[in-house]
């Protein structure tokens, strides 16, 4: 049991971590060695076009985008759970998923911007619905994490953070609507995944990306949850310790008073 209070690792999480590392090595091989760059020939002019090597970024970008939504949705559900049940488990889950989700969301924005430079010829496109919605989502959860880092009584902070998370999730469809109406356009391509327009090995690598980054996500969530749980236990332990010390102090005072009284009687 000593291990459970000094480390966030366990045999299960170490196995998960090892599997994730092997998966990442495999994904790197597929992304950079086995798959070809996206080069196509124009049917009439014969000129080369496509995403070229930038396509390899999508093996990271697309899974991260999906995981961002998974994380923030988990955060919203856990926040609602906390407001209903008031259990620390819900609060720690909400905090962990928001933190991991914000990292994923930041990576989506950065990789998307790097990918956009050669493919769209711009680092940033104002008016692209998905881009703007993702940015606002990132800013909303940056605020959430700032609230989490503000010193406050734990239950008060948990309650307020839960409300911020729920408002953020409700706000997102409105942001999406407003940005869509704002420009009514997107540079993002329509899903080629559903129509299986992308080639076999590329599709396989993308799917492998989903699995591997899903494992990375699970590993991060597991450890972040355990860190949060240890922090929660530590805070409770400190309170218990302070109460015990105060009791001991009171008992000493009582004994002193009793001795004083006896002494006075002599």
């Amino acid at each position: 049991m000593a291990d459970s209070t000094t480390s966030t690792g366990s045999p299960g999480s170490r196995l998960l971590g090892l599997t994730t590392l092997v998966g990442l090595a495999g994904l790197l091989l597929f992304a950079f060695v086995f798959t070809e760059p996206d080069v196509r020939l124009h049917p009439t002019t014969g000129e080369e076009f496509g995403q070229f090597d930038a396509v390899r970024l999508l093996y990271l970008h697309v899974p991260m985008a999906v995981l961002t939504y998974v994380a923030f949705l988990t955060c919203a559900v856990a926040s609602a759970g906390y407001l209903l049940k008031r259990g620390a488990w819900w609060d720690v889950t909400a905090h962990a998923s928001a933190e991991v989700g914000t990292v994923c969301c930041g990576l989506v924005l950065v990789t998307g911007s790097i990918w956009g430079r050669p493919v769209w010829n711009t680092w940033w496109e104002w008016g692209d619905v998905r881009l703007m919605t993702t940015l606002v989502l990132f800013l909303l959860f940056t605020g959430y994490l700032a609230l989490r880092r503000t010193p406050a009584e734990p239950q008060r902070q948990a309650r307020r953070a839960a409300i911020v998370a729920l408002v953020a999730v409700v706000d997102i469809p409105l942001v999406n609507r407003s940005v869509e109406w704002w420009e009514n356009r997107t540079l993002h391509q329509q899903s080629t995944l559903a129509e299986l327009k992308i080639e076999d090995l590329t599709l396989f690598t993308l799917m492998l990306g989903f699995v591997v980054f899903g494992l990375v996500f699970a590993w991060l969530m597991l450890h972040r949850f355990r860190v949060g749980w240890l922090e929660h236990a530590q805070a409770g332990h400190e309170v218990a310790l302070a109460i015990a010390e105060r009791h001991a102090e009171m008992e000493t005072l009582d004994v002193d008073a009793a001795i004083g009284q006896t002494g006075g009687g002599k």
């Binding site: 606002v136 909303l140 605020g143 911020v164």
Partner: peptide, 9 residues
């Protein structure tokens, strides 16, 4: 930082 992103719409 909490309020302004929510007011984006």
């Amino acid at each position: 930082i909490l309020l302004l992103p929510v007011l984006a719409p």
